[in-house]
Nucleic acid binder design. Structure first.
Length: 263
DNA sequence: AACACGACCTGGTAGC
DNA sequence: TGCTACCAGGTCGTGT
């Protein structure tokens, strides 16, 4: 589920709830991660950050716990005595009797413990943060000129821009009126400007909604918090022009677009 | 460089 | 109701 906005919401909540707490007992419920239990014990959570769709829990003793929620999942603190969901894959008992829970129904998520240098190396393959100052039209134009990828695939590729997923890339392309199959290096300047603005706007709006929803419910559902124009709306009218939304496959994934607006 | 496809996992839902 | 098939917000590896 989570793309950048949802991960950002999880990150902010966690920062407020978990920084300063110490892990007194770590339980990894999947065999492959069992050996992390000892290494996590007695570590203080000193900072929580986000990079792309990755959550980074900085721990005392110079370690970084990288958590990726993948298709499903959540990471949050439960008050003492609150029941963990059945789909909990790991949990961390904190010094104040609360519990940090990694809920990951589809079990595709990643938890790994890295040194700062290892994280640095892994992060090298991640691209631009789309909500950072460095993400400019100039940057996008330069990257686009180097890529013949279809626009949708370009946006999904984390080594270009880090954080967009299937929903928000479709929505950004719709707002920018760009056909998802259009090769990036064939977009002209006005389209690139529109795409830059659309990516920033879509993500900013979604971060705001996701944070509000998450602070209240402790959950996120992009399709509930964000007014999608095309995603998941095959056969229904485009809210802008009324033409029926189409669904195509690109790189094995569904892409939704409006044949009227996006050419 | 780009695509196709399978793998990793589980749960929800549409259709029979 | 109960079964099956397909679908899902992500990413990686392999092969063409």
């Amino acid at each position: 589920m989570p793309e950048l906005p949802e991960v950002e919401a999880v990150c902010r909540k966690l920062r407020a709830d978990a920084v300063g707490s110490t892990i007194v007992n770590a339980r990894m419920l999947r065999r492959r991660n069992r050996r992390l239990e000892d290494r996590l014990r007695s570590r203080e959570i000193t900072a929580v950050k986000r990079r792309g769709k990755n959550l980074l829990l900085h721990l005392s003793g110079e370690l970084v716990l990288r958590v990726h929620l993948r298709m499903s999942g959540n990471l949050y603190v439960l008050a003492a005595g609150q029941a963990r969901p059945a789909t909990t894959r790991a949990y961390f008992e904190l010094n104040d009797a609360r519990t940090l829970v990694f809920d990951n129904p589809r079990a595709l998520g990643i938890i790994e413990l890295l040194t700062p240098a290892e994280w640095e190396a892994a992060a090298a393959s991640l691209g631009m943060e789309p909500l950072s100052e460095e993400f400019t039209v100039e940057w996008l134009a330069a990257a686009a000129a180097r890529s013949r990828q279809p626009a949708k695939c370009f946006l999904l590729n984390q080594s270009h821009l880090a954080g967009l997923g299937n929903i928000y890339s479709a929505e950004a392309l719709h707002r920018a009126r760009i056909h998802p199959a259009k090769p990036m290096n064939r977009l002209r300047r006005p389209k690139l400007e529109a795409l830059h603005a659309a990516v920033v706007r879509v993500l900013r709006d979604a971060v705001k909604s996701a944070c509000n929803a998450y602070a209240g419910a402790g959950r996120y559902n992009s399709l509930e918090i964000f007014p999608v124009a095309v995603y998941g709306r095959e056969g229904r009218p485009c809210p802008v022009c009324g033409r029926l939304v189409r669904r195509i496959l690109q790189a094995g994934r569904a892409t939704y677009y409006c044949p009227g607006c996006q050419r």
